[in-house]
Design a protein around this nucleic acid. Structure first.
Lengths: 235, 235
DNA sequence: ACATAAAATGACGTTACGTCATATACTTCT
DNA sequence: AGAAGTATATGACGTAACGTCATTTTATGT
C-alpha cells in the first residue's frame, strides 16, 4: 500500500526530527531545560503533533535511552566480533565503551536521567519493555563471554552462582565509571584522571582479581586488543 | 544572646521538619512527586516559609544530599576506625556501605538525583561548596588508606599516578553498585544477586587484582573484618 | 499600651505540561 | 472535477506547581 507507507515514512521522518531536537536540547540545557513547546517550534510543528509521537516528556527521553542502548549493543557486538580469547574480547568491550561514552555525552546524559525511577515510571509500557529487553540482551552478551571463558578454563569459579555476581559487578563498574565521569564534582575531585581509560583499566584489574588467565601482567591485553581494534577500523 | 538563639533554635527545628517531610515525600513519590506546597501543608506552615529556608526545590534536595554524604562520612570513619591492616579497613568500608545503602533507600535516592547536572545546577552555591568539600573529604579518607598500604608494602604500584586511578575506580564501583541496586530494571536483570554483598565482594576482587597482599585467597577478610565490626557494634 | 521590627502567609504572576475541539489537508467516490 | 468523508495538525485551554512579594500577623521593646 503505497499511500500508507508514504504516510508512515513521513511520520517516522518527523519522529526523527523530534528526537534530534530533543537530544540536542537535553544535551545543551539538561532535563529542566528540555521543553516540549520549544521542540515544537524548532521542528516547525505544533505541540499536539509531538504528543502524537510521545505520551509525555519522559517518554521522549525514554526513546532516546533506547537509542543509547541500541548504540551500545551495536558497538559491543562489534567489539566482541574481533575474535581472540574471551578475555581479549572482554577487553575489547572496555576499550570501545570508554571512548564511546566520552565522545557521546548526549547518550550518557539520557541514560543517566532515565535511571531515576520517578522519571522512568512515566515512560510508555512498550518502551519500558524494549528497554528491559535491551538490558537483558546486553547482559547476555557478557554472559556468553563468561561461559566461554569457563568452558575452556580461562576462568575458574568457586561456585556457579558467582557468575551472576561477576556480571553484576562489571556492569556496576561500567555504570559507575560513566556516572563519575558525567559528574562535575567528581571530575573535579579526580583532576588527573583519563576517564577514557578508567573503565578499561578497572576491568583489567577486576579480571586479574578473578584470576582470569593469562593475567594482564603476562599479556598486554590493552596493547594487543587496541591494535586489533584499530586494524579493523573501530576506535 | 538568649532571644536570638531561641529564634535560631526554632528556625533550625523547622528546617528539620521540612527536611523530614521532604525526605519522606521524595522516597515515596520520587522527584516528580516532591511538591513544595504539599510539604508546607504537611508541616503546617506556608509555602513562603519554606522558601525562607531553601531557594528552590532542588536546593532542598541538595541539603538532603549533604546529609547523605555526612552520614556516609560518619560510617566510613567508624569503619576505618576498627583498626587492622589497610586492606582490612578498606574491607570494612565495603562491609558497612553495603547494608547502609540497602537499608537507607532514601539516602540513595537523594544522591542519585543530585548527580543529574541540570538539577544540581540549581542548588545554592554554599551548599554546592559543602557537597564538593564532602566529596573531597571522602576521597581523602580512601587516599590515606592507600598511602598506608603503599608505605608498608601491602600494595605496590607500577607508577605513582596509578593511585588516583585506583581511587576513582573504587569510587566508581561504589557508585555503580548502588545505582544498579536502585534501578528496577537492573534488579530484574540480576534476580539472584545479593546487593548487600555486591560492592564488598567486588572490592575484594579489585584489591586482589591489584595484588594487594595478603590476597583474599590467603586471608578471609570478610569473615575477619565482619566479625570485628559486629564485635564493636557496627553492622 | 503603643510603636516598631521580624516573620508568616497565601494570592498572584509565570511557566510548562498535556488535552481536545476545531480547522486543515488529503483521499476516495461519483 | 467536485463533493463527501477521513485522517492529520493545530494551538487555545485547563491544570499544576514553582517561586515572589505585598500584606497581615506575631513578637519585641519602651
Amino acid at each position: 500500500m503505497g499511500t500508507y507507507s508514504r504516510k508512515q515514512r513521513e511520520f517516522e521522518k518527523r519522529e526523527e526530527l523530534i528526537l534530534e531536537a530533543g537530544r540536542n536540547m537535553l544535551l545543551e540545557k539538561g532535563y529542566l531545560g528540555l521543553n516540549m513547546e520549544r521542540i515544537a517550534e524548532e521542528i516547525e510543528y505544533s505541540k499536539g503533533t509531538i504528543y502524537k509521537h510521545f505520551c509525555c516528556k519522559e517518554d521522549l527521553v525514554g526513546r532516546l535511552m533506547i537509542e543509547t542502548l541500541m548504540k551500545i549493543r551495536e558497538i559491543i557486538l562489534k567489539a566482541v566480533g574481533i575474535g581472540g580469547t574471551a578475555r581479549e574480547r572482554m577487553t575489547a568491550i572496555g576499550l570501545v565503551l570508554g571512548p564511546f561514552m566520552i565522545l557521546n555525552p548526549g547518550h550518557l546524559r539520557t541514560y543517566e536521567l532515565m535511571r531515576i525511577g520517578s522519571l522512568r515510571e512515566k515512560v510508555s509500557p512498550e518502551k519500558l519493555e524494549t528497554i528491559h529487553d535491551l538490558h537483558h540482551e546486553l547482559i547476555s552478551i557478557i554472559e556468553k563471554l563468561l561461559d566461554e571463558a569457563l568452558e575452556n578454563g580461562e576462568l575458574v569459579l568457586s561456585c556457579p552462582e558467582q557468575k551472576e555476581n561477576i556480571i553484576a559487578a562489571g556492569w556496576s563498574m561500567a555504570i559507575g565509571a560513566y556516572m563519575v565521569f558525567s559528574d562535575v564534582d567528581d571530575r573535579h575531585v579526580f583532576p588527573g584522571i583519563d576517564f577514557k581509560n578508567l573503565f578499561p583499566d578497572a576491568l583489567q584489574v577486576m579480571m586479574d582479581g578473578l584470576a582470569w588467565v593469562p593475567l594482564s601482567s603476562e599479556r598486554d591485553y590493552k596493547g594487543i586488543v587496541g591494535a586489533r581494534l584499530r586494524e579493523q577500523g573501530f576506535l
